[in-house]
Nucleic acid binder design. Structure first.
Length: 259
DNA sequence: ATGGTCGTCTAACGA
């Protein structure tokens, strides 16, 4: 557990369907810790054997059919916590937290929000508010903290294929971006943008309308680190290769390496 | 063309 280590985030859109792809990606890229979203199953149904043979242990916050988040770790995780007290009555499994050495990792699956103005959008905004309060009251911006996951929000215009069309749409509406802004104001850094400036670098493409082939995507799978931890980052990359495979997730992995 | 495609205890939902 000494030396540089790699943390990846991947919305797998059903771990039951994607376990072989995740195992192959572990074999190819050798990450130390994976944060997965959209498991779509309960902890009891998690296909852990495929990862145990690779000496990866799972920490799972699951539910039937929807949502679900997990860590796959080659090293011991401590202080594992599931859900957040700020959304205590919420049955949706969208957050898991753990500590690896001196680094705390929070893995989130932010609600999609459906369409602006819908009940699901209101839930998304309530969830993001609860998450900001969670950080503000239970963490400090000077600790070694990283928040990874599917945020279902593109931070900037260069992070979505048609920012003008999406200006008032879900994934890029003003209130959603303001919710990310609150996290930046608290002290988180969008790690990918410490290493890459270009527009058109996406982590998700809709299955419909040949969006991947047409390069119509968004960067919504994000790695946010406190400044103290961001200064230890050596790289941050999107690996588009898994999105090219047969039967892919609609999201592709994003990873960071830390000293 | 309010379309398209995936995944979910195969029927509409959610993404």
């Amino acid at each position: 557990m000494s030396g540089p280590w790699t943390l990846a985030t991947w919305n797998v859109n059903s771990i039951k369907m994607r376990a072989p792809a995740v195992a192959a990606w572990i074999d190819a890229r050798r990450p130390d810790l994976l944060a997965l979203q959209e498991l779509k199953l309960t902890e009891d149904d998690f296909p852990g054997a495929e990862f145990a043979t690779r000496n990866f242990r799972a920490a799972i916050h699951g539910q039937k059919t929807y949502n679900g988040v997990a860590f796959l770790s080659a090293d011991a995780l401590e202080d594992v916590a599931k859900g957040m007290p700020e959304m205590e009555d919420d049955p949706q499994a969208r957050l898991i937290k753990a500590r690896r050495g001196d680094v705390t990792i929070i893995n989130v699956y932010v609600p999609n929000g459906s369409t602006v103005g819908s009940d699901k959008y209101a839930y998304k905004m309530r969830w993001l508010d609860a998450f900001a309060r969670h950080l503000e009251t239970r963490h400090r911006p000077d600790e070694a903290l990283v928040v990874v996951g599917d945020f279902n929000v593109a931070p900037e215009a260069r992070d979505i294929y048609d920012p003008v069309a999406f200006k008032d749409q879900v994934l890029f509406s003003e209130p959603e971006r303001a919710a990310l802004g609150r996290l930046f104001d608290w002290g988180l850094v969008d790690l990918f943008r410490r290493f890459h400036e270009d527009a058109g670098l996406y982590s998700w493409w809709d299955y419909r309308a040949a969006a991947f082939r047409r390069k119509l995507g968004a960067r919504i799978d994000l790695i946010f680190a406190t400044r103290a931890l961001a200064d230890r980052a050596l790289r941050c990359e999107i690996d588009v290769e898994p999105r090219r495979a047969e039967k892919p997730s609609d999201h592709t992995p994003v990873w960071a390496q830390f000293a």
